[in-house]
Amino acid sequence: MTALLAGSAVVTCLGTGAETFDALLDGRSGLGPLRRTDAERLSVSRGYHIADDDSCFRAGAWLTQCVRQALDEAEITPQTHRIAAVIGTGLRELRTLERWEEPPADFPTHLLHFGSAARAAEPALTEVVTVSNACSAGGHALAMAQDMLDLGEADAVVVGATDEMSGSMLTMIGRVAEEPTEAVRPFDADRGGVLLGEGAAAVVLVAEGATERPLARVLATGVSCDAHHETAPSTEGLGRAVTDALRRGDRTGRDVDLVVAHGTGTALNDPAEARVLLENVVGDGPGPLVTALKGAIGHTSGASALHNLDVAIRALRHGRVPPVVGLRHPLPEGEGLRFAVDSTPTAPMRLAQIDAFGFGGVNTVTLLEAV
């Protein structure tokens, strides 16, 4: 069954959801020098940071802010609805844990999950589930939320996601790049690799008819888990997530007007995603507009799916698609894709596809319909 989005809230290095969308339309980026870590030792010198203090449990604090704002916008309260929450993350609060060579005996390990952070925004949540599904965690949380509504386990579900860049993830991306990456360049022939961003997002999902002012309709989320490789993507696995979403949503690739791509700017992901879009979405038609956010806000790990979702909501509502920041020379494998290169108004758009692909082949693709 379909579901409605009743509220959405975002925080990125560019600000709130509205501020981020405006910056994306202008082609601006939140890229800056790496903070709080030894850049030379990590072979990573740049990142997409949120400009706040270096306090503990930052990811949870951002999540609390977004959950509260999304519920306020949705006008959903526990007095009238049974509200559950599903939170996606790739790293949890790992950055806080890394502060100690040996964590203190009384370290509050329950804060590594996000039940306390979500309940700080709404204490009456019936349950909070944390899903750690790499870079597609927010998409998996959305799929679980839709199942909960379909099964009658909640009247409304807050779908949240959050991640702060950690030293361990920075070390990993520094090891796989021959030279330190200067900027994320999704789908560019000269792309040099990924850089991390950070932030959080939350949306409120309700059943059809449960809100008079929906932001958009979630038709379906397709999933796949191919376990092809620890990090390298499988085009077959990515394709299964796309076809699963189209089948569940009773749509075809020709119906898709906009793709908000995963677009990591890496050697393997971008060609694989381009091939999957050409084979499963474009077909023999002109194909949808394709945009990607990571050149502007970095790779926000488990939050990236919901960041893409918020931009898709705004693009459908306002008829404008942000350009792919950092894209100058499209990669050869992308020939035939219509990459967004400016933010001029588009023809009316009805259907958006949101891609989120994670390490280990955990993939999600969400179809979002205008209302």
Rank of each mutant, 00 (worst) to 15 (best):
R41F: 08
L5P: 02
G60P: 07
V325S: 05
A356N: 08
G358S: 11
G334R: 00
F187Q: 00
A296P: 00
P103V: 13
G326M: 03
C135W: 00
V204H: 04
A6P: 02
V44S: 04
V44L: 08
R317C: 07
T364W: 08
E333M: 00
A201S: 14
G237Q: 06
L71V: 06
R217W: 07
G287V: 13
D226E: 12
G237M: 11
Q146L: 08
G193C: 10
A177N: 15
A120Q: 12
A274L: 00
S304Q: 12
T291I: 09
A161L: 11
A134L: 02
T20S: 15
D255S: 13
P123Y: 11
G263P: 03
A227Y: 06
R185T: 15
V131C: 13
V157P: 10
G239Q: 10
A137K: 07
A296Q: 04
I50K: 02
Q353P: 00
G47W: 15
I76K: 03
E101H: 05
G138Q: 07
P323G: 11
G167L: 14
A84S: 15
H307L: 13
P123L: 12
P271V: 00
D38L: 10
S45R: 13
L42V: 02
N133K: 04
L196V: 00
A154Y: 06
I50E: 05
I76W: 03
S301G: 01
F357Q: 12
L94R: 11
T181S: 10
L142R: 03
T2E: 13
L205Q: 12
P180H: 03
R95G: 05
F114R: 07
R350I: 02
A241Y: 05
M172Y: 09
V11M: 02
A200V: 05
T37S: 10
A120C: 06
R95L: 10
R175F: 04
G30T: 11
S29A: 14
L293I: 02
R68S: 15
D270I: 01
L316C: 10
R82C: 14
T211Q: 06
S55P: 00
R251K: 12
G32I: 08
L337T: 06
E127F: 04
A134S: 13
T300V: 01
T162D: 01
G17A: 14
I50M: 07
G27I: 12
V86A: 13
V259Y: 06
A220P: 03
Y48C: 06
T291V: 08
W100V: 13
A3Y: 05
G239W: 05
A70N: 07
G115W: 02
R320F: 01
T252K: 06
L112R: 00
D54I: 06
N133M: 12
D250P: 00
L111A: 04
G199W: 00
C135I: 04
